[in-house]
Write a protein that binds this DNA or RNA. Sequence first.
DNA 1: TCCTGGCGATGTCGGCTTTCGTCATCGGCC
DNA 2: GGCCGATGACGAAAGCCGACATCGCCAGGA
Lengths: 90, 90
Amino acid sequence: MTKADIARIVYERHGGISNREAARLVEQIFETLKSRLSDGEKVQITGFGTFLVRQKRERRGRNPQTGEEMVIKSRRSVVFRPSKLFGAAE
Amino acid sequence: MTKADIARIVYERHGGISNREAARLVEQIFETLKSRLSDGEKVQITGFGTFLVRQKRERRGRNPQTGEEMVIKSRRSVVFRPSKLFGAAE
DNA sequence: TCCTGGCGATGTCGGCTTTCGTCATCGGCC
DNA sequence: GGCCGATGACGAAAGCCGACATCGCCAGGA
């Protein structure tokens, strides 16, 4: 499933907006999420899950091509914590 | 940040829809995502990230309250793979 | 609908990091 | 006002991430 699929479903279910507007809305929502997460902000979508930003420390790894050890730099990552309300999680 | 914040931003930036409609849209989008992921489907939002459904095998754990060993049952989980395009991931 | 540019998946190793069970309480989302 | 999510305890097992080339597919514009 992709953004286009989501936009189509929004268009079909919502009514009153065009396909194009639906696509723009979907784009806007994910751009907003991305922007906030990039700023380090936590995002909580009740019933869906929570996006958290984690700061990961520098650590050792290796170049998988050469086998040489190298440093994986400290960086931020985004983790998703699904809501316990997800169905069929069996 | 929560669903309400996202809805407000959608309302502010999009125009032509009410606050309430914006909230419904946001709700609809995440309900759709949740539903598809619950069905085991992968969801890819280019530029944002990919949600994957993983089947995790049964494994050992322990009751944190009693210290007794117990089994963590096999189950499905959703993992999020952020796009490499996330900014400020430094 | 087509075309083109760009995004994402894939595989490799290994030391370190994260996962998850239960459950009561409280803050906050809807 | 009711429901959802965060929190913490332990430890075996699962997952992370570097580089990078290639190929499949997404997405936006015409």
